[in-house]
Design a protein around this nucleic acid. Structure first.
Length: 952
RNA sequence: GGGCCUAUAGCUCAGUUGGUUAGAGCGCACCCCUGAUAAGGGUGAGGUGAUUGGUUCGACUCCAAUUAGGCCCA
């Protein structure tokens, strides 16, 4: 039996497990970070060199979903990278605590008791609810390996934060932005309350469908127009009655009709009918005439045609009210239904309202909070609007304003989520922040231009929104939020804008939270003896509405960036999903631009949404939801982190079982590469190493390196460069792909494979082997550090296996920088050729392997038949070729006439590869074949090289 | 319906200012190894560049429309 020489080899040796067992191991590492205060230690830096990423607060409701995980992990990657780059880069997570969803949950729990509970008691329940989920989410975020000051987050419901909200609101009041106006909201007449969009459910409802004509007051405009078609000899000149025709399903909104909307580019035509000359969109004529009940021949379509724009500003008369109604134009008009002429009641519709604002029309809504007409509406005062529908139709019929007869249609209509009854849209008094005051809109637009948007199209998106948005409606008729802290004089209705009054409230809120507004009386909240500056009255009322929660989070720049000593203003980066262009990015911008004239951020980065493997959005009903908890429990958070870095977040990110499986494999490959590096740096003297790696004796080490070692180092520098650039540009998928490719291609399949012979069979302390280890050590350090921001758990684990005498955590080390002295362009160029020759040899070997001529490549001898040019390339490497090809022998023959059985390279002209069996016998130690095997009596199974190693 | 965005192999990504037969890794198939071993190596097969039109000597790259999808509005 042949002696086993395995013990004489330097095989890899490491305790670092191949199997990650992430689900368990991550918990240990989290514990390590906790007990060693790793995050805190990372903050012990020069604060003047800071990189501030300001956290956008998630809503403290429910468990985190995959989108939350993506967002927090991306932030974490940046924070860790910047920190390792030497920046003071703290992360203060925050939570958005006020708002409707929490209030709803509390209402739900209260059930029938809802009405009996005081506002303060309810607010307490809301607070408890928010705290509960804050804790849950905090644990879930920490479990993902996200670093941050989790012990001291910011909460929009903390006293300090609430005081900031009141203070910032006060600034808006002082500067004159805040005004009271009317805006239509969903209103439930049965519950007598305003409803938020989320409280509205859509259900089918039967409504009347009617066509109504509006008489043109002055037809002179038309008299100058050639109205008559050749077929219509009578012409229009004798006609004095011209009407616009509208269609509506809410006759009750007609008393509030203030305008008729046309589309600026649609074509409108005049139609002669027994009921007069009607104007409507030409594409809808046929349909309307049918619906109204005319038969063909009953009406004549004239040649007269205009665009909506041409018809703008025509004065009409309301069917029965003494009111002029003008035609206006808007893009919201469609040709899907109706007449192309839209009845517009700014007090009863969202688009109508927008049009009203645009044209300066009164936002008129003569309907009270129980859904009944007010005294304003003479004929129908006191009537419920839905019940009044029929009477209004009768009225229209009587005054001959109704075309055809009323029909019934069933359509989707908003209903109250609580009482399930149909709701109405009704203008109510609301508080607004003016976009025009102090040039807020323009100022915000200027700041948008100064901000770096990543990706760049973010600028266009938010710009368009800010350009077109209406004034900011900041009031909500709710309980769970920060009150609009305004007083009104009961006598003269003056709103108090005194700074002293506001400051006083801020102080109160600082002490006791926003609850104080509801707890204390007006007198207690006002400075003592305060009197109205206008009428000297001392009787005031306090506002009961609360602020829009977007105002809450919008002022985080003041409440957190400015106020928190750990941070500074403005932030270097805001990073959220692309939905926040309308949300937080905008509210923050307006809140900051309105009070400080500047954006609160230097750069804004957005990521896409998480979708399923088909690119469809995740939804419970489809059942394609993947939760972060699921991934963590099955594969480990590390895989989720890797997923965040693997895909391009600027687009929507897909996640599926297959994608995760691929990532698990990629993870294993990276892990195993590091494990091999660890195993082969075993026994290496780190200290002497580091000395010689420093400037003390660099040349000596460099001189010991083989060419392939220097090549590997050069390749490493390129990787370092690429990875640095990718992190700087926030292109983490580039980080992942380059590191991964480096592990697979440059290391595993090339350098490490070639190196095995030297590492295993050379003497442990030989300078060749030491040189290789030195390179491996450097690669390992660089790789581990570079992956740390993404694969934080694994990097920390690897770090703990790297011979010590250094930082306690990988996150306390500094990020690898390119060392230009190790870049060797010339060498790379030479090796490009060698590398492609190696590829061709592999092809030749494969053919022989498939033919069962050889198995292991060491059984082969390679003979290269080359031309002059290739000979020059190979000449200097003759002795190294067997190592490079991982075969037992290699010859280079300068002869363009290749033998028959050889593989003629299609890629490299002038080269053929002949594979022969290696001569001699297989060395039992190094497995290379050679004629020296058997020569030595003391070790008959060894080749000369191994004999030398064992006997010297 | 509107604004913004996306569409390259089964998967994740590259593709320089429009210029030869569109690249990588994974996965897959086949083979080798059994001294990185629930590892490692090799070879190979996979693409009508969403579709349709246009600009151009020439388009994955520029433009338009369509389709599918995403976010935000309506």
């Amino acid at each position: 039996m042949e002696k086993d020489y395995k013990d004489t080899l330097n095989l890899p040796k490491t305790e670092f497990p191949m199997k990650a067992n992430l689900v368990q191991k991550e918990l240990e590492i989290l514990d390590f970070w906790k007990t060693h205060n790793t995050y805190q230690k990372m903050q012990e830096k020069d604060k003047s060199n800071a990189y501030i990423l300001h956290d956008g607060p998630p809503y403290a409701n429910g468990h985190i979903h995959i989108g939350h995980a993506l967002n927090k992990i991306l932030k974490d990657i940046i924070i860790k990278y910047k920190s390792m780059k030497g920046f003071y880069s703290p992360y203060i997570p925050g939570w958005d605590c006020h708002g409707l969803p929490i209030e709803h949950e509390v209402d739900k729990k209260l059930g029938s008791k809802k009405g009996e509970v005081s506002i303060l008691a309810k607010r307490t329940l809301c607070k408890e609810y928010a705290l509960k989920f804050l804790d849950i989410q905090r644990e879930e975020f920490k479990r993902l390996g996200v670093f941050g000051d989790w012990q001291e987050p910011y909460l929009t419901m903390s006293f300090q934060y609430e005081a900031s909200i009141v203070r910032e609101f006060g600034k808006f009041v002082e500067k004159g932005y805040v005004y009271k106006g009317k805006k239509p909201v969903h209103w439930c007449p049965s519950c007598v309350t305003a409803l938020a969009e989320a409280e509205v459910e859509y259900a089918d409802k039967e409504s009347p469908s009617i066509y109504v004509k509006f008489k043109v007051k002055n037809t002179s405009k038309f008299k100058n127009t050639p109205l008559t078609s050749p077929l219509d000899k009578g012409g229009l000149r004798g006609v004095s009655e011209i009407y616009f025709v509208i269609w509506t399903t809410t006759p009750w909104t007609l008393p509030a009709n203030m305008a008729l909307s046309l589309h600026p580019r649609f074509m409108y035509r005049l139609v002669k009918t027994p009921d007069g000359e009607l104007i409507l969109a030409q594409d809808l004529i046929k349909n309307c005439m049918e619906k109204i009940g005319y038969k063909e021949g009953d009406y004549i379509i004239t040649e007269s045609v205009w665009t909506g724009s041409e018809l703008e500003g025509i004065v009409c008369r309301h069917p029965w009210i003494d009111r002029n109604v003008e035609t206006i134009v808007g893009e919201h008009v469609t040709l899907e239904q109706g007449t192309g002429v839209v009845h517009t009641a700014p007090g009863h519709g969202e688009e109508d309202y927008e049009m009203g604002l645009k044209y300066g029309i009164d936002i008129y809504a003569p309907v009270d909070d129980k859904g009944c007409f007010t005294e304003d509406v003479k004929d129908f005062a006191g009537q419920n609007v839905f019940k009044a529908n029929q009477e209004i139709i009768e009225k229209l019929k009587n005054i001959n304003a109704l075309l055809g007869s009323a029909e019934k249609i069933t359509h989707s209509y908003p209903h109250c989520w609580r009482c399930k009854k149909p709701v109405i849209f009704r203008a109510t008094e609301q508080w607004f922040i003016s976009m025009e005051k102090n040039n807020l809109r323009q100022n915000a637009l200027d700041e948008i231009k100064k901000t770096r948007w990543i990706p760049a199209w973010g600028l266009d998106r938010i710009k368009g929104m800010v350009e077109n948005r209406p004034d900011w409606c900041i009031s909500r008729q709710r309980a769970w939020g920060v009150p609009i802290t305004l007083f009104q004089c009961k006598k003269c209705k003056q709103i108090i804008t005194d700074k002293a009054v506001i400051d006083n409230v801020v102080k109160e809120v600082e002490k006791a939270g926003a609850d104080v507004w509801f707890e204390k009386s007006v007198k207690e909240l006002l400075p003592e003896g305060y009197k109205c500056s206008k009428c000297n009255s001392s009787e005031f009322s306090k506002e009961t509405d609360i602020l829009d929660v977007w105002f809450d989070s919008g002022v985080s720049h003041a409440a957190v960036l400015e106020a928190d000593k750990r941070l500074s203003w403005p932030a270097d980066l805001y990073l959220e999903g692309s939905d926040q262009h309308r949300g937080w990015f905008q509210s923050s911008l307006l809140a900051s631009a309105g009070t400080r004239g500047k954006a609160p951020y230097r750069a804004v980065l957005t990521h896409g949404f998480v979708v399923d493997g088909q690119g469809k959005k995740m939804s419970k009903s489809i059942g394609n939801v993947i939760s972060p908890q699921e991934v963590t429990n099955k594969h480990g958070s590390e895989i989720l982190r890797l997923w965040c870095a693997s895909a391009d977040y600027r687009e929507d990110m897909r996640i599926s079982k297959e994608i995760l499986d691929r990532l698990v494999e990629a993870y294993r490959k990276i892990r195993n590469t590091c494990r091999f590096l660890l195993g082969n740096t075993y026994g290496f003297e780190v200290k002497s190493f580091e000395t010689s790696a420093s400037s003390v004796e660099p040349l000596k080490v460099k001189g010991d390196l083989l060419e392939i070692d220097r090549l590997a180092l050069s390749m490493l520098q390129h990787l370092i460069e690429k990875v640095n650039r990718a992190y700087e540009n926030f292109e983490f998928h580039e980080v992942f792909h380059s590191i991964y490719n480096f592990c697979v291609t440059n290391m595993s399949a090339f350098y490490l494979d070639v190196l095995k012979d030297r590492l295993y069979t050379f003497k442990a302390g030989s300078k060749e082997r030491q040189a290789a280890q030195w390179v491996l050590y450097n690669i390992l350090l660089a790789l581990t550090k570079m992956m740390a921001p993404v694969l934080s758990f694994t990097a920390e684990e690897i770090w703990s296996f790297i011979p010590k005498n250094k930082e306690e955590s990988i996150f306390l080390t500094s990020f690898p920088e390119v060392q230009p002295e190790f870049i060797d362009k010339e060498l790379e160029k030479k090796w490009e050729n060698l590398s492609s020759i190696r590829d061709e040899v592999n092809k030749a070997l494969e053919i022989k392997r498939q033919q069962k001529f050889i198995g292991n490549s060491l059984e082969a001898k390679v003979i290269l038949y080359v031309d002059e040019e290739n000979y020059k390339i190979l000449e200097g490497y003759r002795t190294f070729l067997p190592t490079l090809f991982i075969v037992s022998a290699a010859e280079v023959v300068k002869d363009p006439n290749h033998p028959e059985d050889s593989y003629k390279s299609p890629l490299i002209s002038g080269m053929a590869v002949l594979i022969d069996k290696a001569q001699g016998n297989k060395c039992s130690r190094c497995w290379n074949w050679g004629i020296t095997v058997g020569k030595y009596k003391d070790f008959p199974g060894l080749c000369a090289r191994c004999h030398e190693v064992l006997t010297s």
